[in-house]
C-alpha cells in the first residue's frame, strides 16, 4: 500500500479552492453589502422579488444553476456572445467562470446574515449618527459596520465555507481542469471514482474538520459579543 500523504496535485486543488473562495468572498461583499442594505431598508415590491431571487440557490439543485450558467455563458448563450465580442472569451471552464458561478451560488449565505443584522440595527442609531454630523458613508463605516460585526463575520465564514464546499455548480460550469477549475470537492470525487478511498478520506476528512472548526469559531465569537442594547434603550 502506497504511503498516504497529500501530493502536489492535492495541494494544487487545495490552493485553487482557497483562491476561489477568497476571490469569491471579495466579490460577494462588494455586491452583497449594498444589496443587503437595500433589501433590509426597502419596502418596495421589487425588494421582495429580489430577496426571493437571491435565496433561490438555497433550494435549487446546484446542477440546475450550473446548467443554466453553462447555457447562458457558453459560446451560444447571450452573455457568452457578449463576453466573446468584447474580447473576454467565454467563461465556462475558466477560473473566472467559477468565480461568477460561486458568487451567485453563495450569494444568499452572505446577503441573508447581513440583511438580518442591518434590519436589527433599526433606524435610531442612523438618526443619532446623522444628528452628530456623520454623513451616510461615515455612518456606515463607523456605526453600522462595528454594530453589525457579527453579521459581517457570519457572512464571511458562511460565504467562504460554502464556496469551498460547492460541487455541482463547479462540475457543470468548470469541469475538471487541474490548476484551473479542479477544486477540492472535484478532486475528492476523482479519488472516489478511482477507488482511492484512503486518499479520499484524507481530503474529505480535512474538509469536514475545516467546515466544523470555522462554524464553531463563529459560534464562539458571536456568543462572546451578543448584540446587546443596540437600540440604546433603557433596560
Amino acid at each position: 500500500m502506497p504511503e498516504l500523504k497529500i501530493g502536489p496535485e492535492d495541494w494544487l486543488a487545495i490552493g485553487l479552492t482557497a483562491r476561489l473562495a477568497a476571490v469569491t468572498l471579495v466579490v460577494l461583499f462588494v455586491i452583497g453589502t449594498p444589496l443587503a442594505w437595500w433589501l433590509a431598508r426597502s419596502r418596495s415590491a421589487a425588494a421582495s422579488v429580489v430577496s426571493a431571487l437571491v435565496a433561490v440557490p438555497l433550494v435549487l439543485p446546484p446542477t440546475v444553476l450550473g446548467f443554466y450558467l453553462l447555457v447562458l455563458l457558453g459560446p451560444q448563450g447571450p452573455v457568452g456572445r457578449l463576453t466573446e465580442s468584447i474580447g473576454l472569451g467565454t467563461l465556462p471552464f475558466t477560473f473566472a467562470g467559477l468565480v461568477v458561478a460561486s458568487t451567485l451560488f453563495s450569494l444568499p449565505f452572505v446577503v441573508q446574515p447581513l440583511q438580518s443584522s442591518f434590519a436589527a440595527l433599526g433606524e435610531r442609531m442612523l438618526e443619532a449618527a446623522a444628528t452628530l454630523r456623520a454623513g451616510p458613508l461615515d455612518t456606515f463605516l463607523h456605526v453600522v459596520v462595528p454594530l453589525c460585526r457579527p453579521g459581517f463575520l457570519s457572512a464571511a465564514v458562511l460565504g467562504f465555507a460554502h464556496t469551498v464546499g460547492e460541487f455541482g455548480v463547479v462540475l457543470m460550469m468548470g469541469g475538471n481542469i487541474p490548476g484551473e477549475t479542479q477544486v477540492l470537492s472535484i478532486a475528492i470525487y476523482n479519488r472516489v471514482e478511482a477507488f482511492e478511498y484512503d486518499h479520499a478520506h484524507l481530503l474529505a476528512g480535512g474538509l469536514l474538520v475545516f467546515s466544523f472548526v470555522s462554524l464553531l469559531a463563529l459560534q464562539w465569537f458571536n456568543r462572546g459579543r451578543a448584540p446587546a442594547g443596540i437600540s440604546g434603550a433603557d433596560a
Binding site: 435610531r124 442609531m125 443619532a128 444628528t131 437600540s231 434603550a233
Partner: peptide, 13 residues
C-alpha cells in the same frame, strides 16, 4: 443641531 432623543441612543460599541 444637537438632538437628544427620548431614549439616550448612545452608540453601544
Amino acid at each position: 443641531i444637537g438632538y437628544v432623543f427620548q431614549e439616550a441612543s448612545l452608540f453601544p460599541h
